[in-house]
Computed example of a mutant assay.
Amino acid sequence: MSGDYSARLVQRLTNLRDGLEPGMDRREFLRTVVSGGYVLGVASYLGVEDFLSADEGEVPIVTALVRSDPDDPFSLEERTRDVPAEWYAAVTKALEINEYLATVGMTGYLGSAVVPGSYSSQTASVSVGISSEGRSTREMIEEIADGISINAETIVEVEEMEDGPPSTQPRVATNVDSGVAPSGVVCETPSSMATLAPALYDPNTEQSYFVTAEHAFEGVSDPVGEPLVLPIDSAEPAQLGAVEYAYPVEDVAVVTPNGDLEPSSTIDTPSSARVRGQYTRLGLADLVARDEYLEKVGALTGHTTGRIQGIDAVTCFTDTFCRRGQIRWGGEMDLTDGDSGSVSFHEDPQGAADDVLVAGFNNARTWWPGQSYVWGIGAYKLTETHGYHF
C-alpha cells in the first residue's frame, strides 16, 4: 500500500469516524463501511473494528496513553473505553464550537471551555467569558450553538493579582541518593522559584528532561541557557541543568540534565506516586462525565484535590495572546506563587496502587471576581503541539 494511498484511506476512515451519528448501531455502521467502498480488512487494520466491538449505542474513545512497561517511558499504548454515542456526539460538537469561538475572536471574547455532561445526561456545554464590551456578542454565540448549551458570563476587568494562600515553607527534596530528582518539590531559577514537574520525554530522541513553568524565569526575554537549581534538605543545592527549550504560550521550560541528577517520573507524595502516562482530551472528558477529581502536589501548597471545571479551555485573560488546550480545575486556593510547574494528575484505574496519569501542567490561578479555578496546559496539547509526553 503506497504512502499516499494509505494517507488518503486513513483520512476517509477518519471522516467516517467523525461522521458517526448518535444511536448508530453496529449493523448501520457496517452497512456504511461497505457502501462507502471500504475493505473491512483494511478498516480493521486501521482500528475501525473498535466500533464493531462496542455495545449497541456506544463508541470507543482513546482515554489515555499508558506505558505497557512501567520502566520504559517510550512503551506507550492507547487505552480505550466505550462511551454512549450521543454523549460522544455532544462533546465533539462542543469542542468544535469552542474552537470556532477561539478562532473567530469576537469582540469582548476572553476565553471559553468545554464542560462535558454526565453519561446519563448525554450532553455537553460551552462556558464563555465575555468582557463588558462584548455583551452584544451573546446572541451571536447562541446562534452557532447548534443544540449545545452556551453559558456566557460577563467578566469584570481583570486587575492586579490578589494575594494567594498564606506563605509557607517550600517542600524541599530530601533524598537524591538514587541519582534522580523527585517532582512536586521546589526548584529555583535565577530570579524565582517554582515546582519541579515529573520527567518529560521526547519520543523522537528518547531524551528525558526536567521541566517547570517558563514564567518562573522572570526578568529575561528568553530563558534558554538559564540554569535550574534543586534545593536539597541538609545539603548543597544541585545544579539540574540549563533551559534548552522555552515555550511562553504553553508556559513550559524544558531543561536538559547536566548529568548529576536525572529526571524522575515519581511525584513526591506520601505514597510516592509513579507516573504511568497521560490523559487524552477525551480522557479528561471521561473524567468529567464520571465526576472524578484531579490532584496536584505543589512546592508551597502541597497536596490538594479538586473537581474539573472545563477542558480544552481557551484563556485570553492575562496576555496579548490566547492559550489553548487548557484545563480548569479546583479552586484559586489550590495554587499560589511557587506551585507553578506542578502537574495535575489522577490515579490510574488499571495500574498499581501508586500509579497515576498526568492531566496537565498548573501554570496559574484565577484572581478576578466571580471565577475560581487553577488553569494550565493539558498534557495532550503539549504532545500535539511539541511531541513531548510524560
Rank of each mutant, 00 (worst) to 15 (best):
L230H: 04
L335D: 02
Y5K: 09
T320F: 14
R276M: 12
A113P: 04
A289W: 00
G378W: 04
L110N: 02
L20E: 03
F345R: 06
G330D: 12
A54H: 05
A181L: 09
A238V: 15
T212Y: 07
D82T: 13
H389G: 05
Y38R: 03
E160S: 14
L76T: 06
A197F: 07
K93F: 01
T123M: 09
G164E: 12
L40E: 12
I311C: 04
R324V: 11
A238L: 10
V91W: 03
M333E: 13
I144H: 11
T168M: 13
R307C: 02
F29R: 05
G129P: 00
G108L: 06
T304N: 11
F390P: 03
A152N: 07
Q371I: 12
S112L: 06
E244Q: 13
L46A: 04
G330V: 07
R328V: 03
V10W: 02
M193H: 15
S340R: 07
Y201R: 02
F390G: 00
T168P: 09
A238R: 12
L300N: 07
F345G: 00
S6C: 05
F217C: 11
T63V: 15
S191K: 12
T92N: 14
G259D: 08
P237Q: 08
T32R: 11
D319N: 14
Y245V: 08
G325N: 08
E86L: 14
D55V: 01
W368N: 09
Q207R: 15
E96G: 13
V33F: 04
D319I: 01
M333C: 00
M24E: 13
S120V: 12
G3R: 14
S272R: 10
S53K: 14
T383E: 11
G37E: 00
S149N: 13
P237F: 03
A124V: 06
Q239P: 07
T269S: 14
E77L: 10
D222Q: 14
S192P: 14
A89V: 14
S191T: 15
E49P: 01
G283V: 02
L40Y: 13
L30P: 00
S125H: 07
D251M: 05
R276Y: 01
L76H: 05
G111A: 01
W367H: 15
